[in-house]
Amino acid sequence: DRMTSQEAACFPDIISGPQQTQKVFLFIRNRTLQLWLDNPKIQLTFEATLQQLEAPYNSDTVLVHRVHSYLERHGLINF
């Protein structure tokens, strides 16, 4: 699994950072998509996403918020 070119453009700090940071991003992105796909008729809020993310992935709330906002803005969740 890899970041898309659009994700890389929107998250230059992640793509240029350590490999582990990219893996954390990918986990948060994929898990958020999975959470929404589990029940697409219900809006997936940032707060609900954060509550359902497993530790330690829920510890970087800023990154979780950025990923959630990106997915929502680009019509990948909550459409």
Rank of each mutant, 00 (worst) to 15 (best):
C10Y: 08
F25M: 05
D38H: 10
D60E: 09
R73K: 15
R2G: 06
L63D: 01
D38E: 14
A8Y: 06
L76D: 04
E54K: 11
N58L: 05
N58V: 05
R66L: 03
T21G: 13
N30F: 03
L71N: 00
Q52K: 14
Q52M: 13
F46H: 05
P18A: 10
K41E: 14
F25I: 02
R29T: 01
R66V: 00
H68V: 05
L50G: 02
T21E: 10
N30E: 09
I15N: 07
P18W: 04
E54S: 12
T32Q: 02
D60K: 07
A48F: 09
L26K: 13
D38T: 11
T21W: 10
I42L: 12
Q19H: 15
A48K: 14
Q51V: 08
T45D: 06
R31L: 08
N30K: 07
N58E: 05
K41M: 11
S69K: 10
D60P: 05
N58D: 07
F27R: 13
V67E: 01
P56Y: 04
Q52P: 02
Q6Y: 06
Y57G: 05
Q22V: 13
H65L: 08
Q34D: 06
F46Y: 10
D60I: 03
V62A: 14
A48H: 15
I14Y: 02
P18S: 14
Y70D: 01
Q34S: 10
R2K: 14
A8N: 09
Q34L: 06
F46G: 06
R2N: 10
V62K: 08
N39K: 08
V67S: 01
C10Q: 14
Q22H: 10
M3C: 05
F79H: 13
Q20I: 15
K23F: 09
N39R: 06
P12S: 09
G17Y: 03
Q20G: 14
G75S: 10
S16M: 09
I28L: 11
S59P: 05
K41G: 13
N39D: 09
L37P: 00
F25S: 02
H65I: 03
S16N: 08
A9L: 13
P56F: 03
C10R: 06
T61E: 10
L37I: 08
D13T: 03
H65S: 13
L63S: 01
F25H: 01
R31I: 13
I15M: 15
I28E: 02
V62Y: 06
N30S: 07
V62Q: 15
N78R: 01
T61F: 08
K23M: 09
T45V: 01
L71E: 02
Q19R: 12
L50Q: 06
W36H: 09
C10V: 09
M3F: 13
V67L: 05
L53R: 02
S16V: 07
W36P: 00
D60T: 02
K23R: 13
S69Q: 12
K41Q: 12
H68I: 03
D1N: 11
H65Q: 15
T49G: 03
Q43R: 14
V64M: 01
T45G: 06
P56N: 04
K41V: 11
H65R: 12
S69Y: 08
L35D: 01
V67R: 00
T4N: 12
L76Q: 07
T45C: 04
Q6E: 12
E72D: 12
I15Q: 15
S69C: 09
I14P: 01
T21R: 13
F25E: 01
Q52N: 15
G17L: 06
L50N: 04
F46C: 11
I28G: 03
Q34H: 15
N78Y: 01
T49N: 07
W36N: 04
R2I: 15
P40R: 07
R66T: 03
H74A: 13
A48W: 10
Q51P: 04
L26C: 15
I77A: 00
Q6S: 11
S69F: 07
E54Y: 12
I14E: 01
T61K: 10
V64H: 03
R29Q: 00
E72A: 12
C10L: 09
D1Q: 06
P12V: 06
A8M: 11
P18D: 09
L53Y: 00
S16C: 10
L50D: 01
Q43M: 08
E72W: 06
